[in-house]
Design a protein around this nucleic acid. Structure first.
Lengths: 220, 220
DNA sequence: CTTCCTATGACAGGTTCTCGACAGCTTTGA
DNA sequence: TCAAAGCTGTCGAGAACCTGTCATAGGAAG
């Protein structure tokens, strides 16, 4: 789990950082708003711990921009004790939680655990093959960054080949799998789908090999 | 949005209830643990505000049982005891947030908004997509600077698509979400709303893509 | 060279989606 | 209280797209 800590007070940043490291997190620390902005634009984190009180920069601004750019990480903000307004604003701007300074590191850990637990289970597993990214949960495929629209049958075929990558899959297996067992599919139809899929994947370096008399296989 | 308030102090319960009602929430109040247990078993809520300090009943127990029975609502706990332990325990038992008494109603409102937003998957109250600005808190949309009046169904549809931007949302999910689970909506009706929403958003560069056989998705 | 398997264009259904028309319902405003 | 305006959802015609058969051509194996 990657965590970004945005905190200008070096001593505090250090304490937070080591507490989180003890939890087996990968922690990055930045000390000012500009840096925070930059790193949030270019890298992905699971959680951001941010002090709202940064010198020469408004933490709320960073948060707002981060969310508007589609940032998805959980955000835990740190505020001084008596700034109710900041906390309220922070939550309204898309923070997930806050902690009032001074706080106990044990409590920080509990909050981080709660936030990360909440986040897990959101990401769907993706399979990357060369230029192709295949997401079976979201049922999306993209090729060289561009989303690729596949008709249902072709999507199922690709899914089957990927799940058995490196092994030969017989035409009969493909037919059964595509036809959902509720009807028959001729071997020729399978050949046709292979042909169509190959054409679509031609731009990426994906190779569906023919194994004469046996079937097809997707090379890894 | 349905909210359950579990609070034995009538005056406080009243204050909370009216604050939430002002936010256009449907609020139910119960005053003791047994009642809370019962209603949580039989009805669904989006959020539960629960005092841990109930006469003759441990709020943490209720919370624990609720989660064990698969309760999915966001839970905000209220605690007078300022012991770190209770708060940490509460979070570890599946509470989503806590507030220490005494608290400010403004802050309660912010927390409730944040929790409900979290539940819907939306992070920032103002989401900018091309020429469109979507404000989930104020429940307003504007397009190219002009406010855009959307009928309720279309607004809900847009909210759903935005909260799942980049993912396919099935017609069934849309139907369930729009119909609020209390009645059925035909797939055809969903198609119609998509059509209407597309027409309204045509001027902005918003693209609702059709994924044949699966549903729709809003491109990022 | 012959035979069988595979590749692919063309095409004819079939399915799914789009959206105008319309009628019932709800809200608004006087 | 009633009328007007607007929202909601059904129907259905037509468009768009998917699917699988046929037919033909290309290649591999013996």
């Amino acid at each position: 789990m990657r965590i970004l800590v945005v905190e200008d007070n070096a001593a505090l940043a250090d304490g937070i950082s080591s507490a989180l490291t003890r939890m087996e997190m990968a922690v990055d620390v930045v000390g000012d708003g500009t840096e925070a902005d930059n790193i949030l634009r270019t890298q992905e984190f699971n959680l951001v711990v941010m002090d709202l009180n940064l010198p020469g920069y408004d933490g709320l601004e960073i948060l707002k921009r981060y969310r508007q750019n589609g940032g998805k990480a959980q955000v835990l903000i740190l505020t001084a004790r008596d700034t109710l307004n900041d906390r309220v604003k922070g939550l309204d701007l898309g923070a997930d939680d806050y902690l009032t300074k001074p706080f106990d590191l044990v409590e920080l850990e509990a909050r981080v655990r709660a936030l990360l637990r909440r986040q897990s289970g959101l990401k769907s597993p993706e399979i990357v093959i060369g230029e192709l990214i295949f997401d079976s949960v979201a049922r999306r495929v993209s090729m060289m960054g561009e989303p690729l629209d596949l008709p249902r049958r072709e999507f199922c075929l690709l899914e089957l080949l990927i799940s058995r990558a490196g092994q030969v899959v017989s035409k009969e297996q493909i037919a059964d799998s595509l036809a959902n067992f509720d009807q028959d599919m001729s071997p020729n139809a399978v050949e046709l789908y292979i042909s169509r899929l190959r054409k679509r994947l031609a731009a990426a370096d994906i190779n569906i090999k023919t194994v004469r008399g046996l079937g097809y296989l997707l090379e890894k």
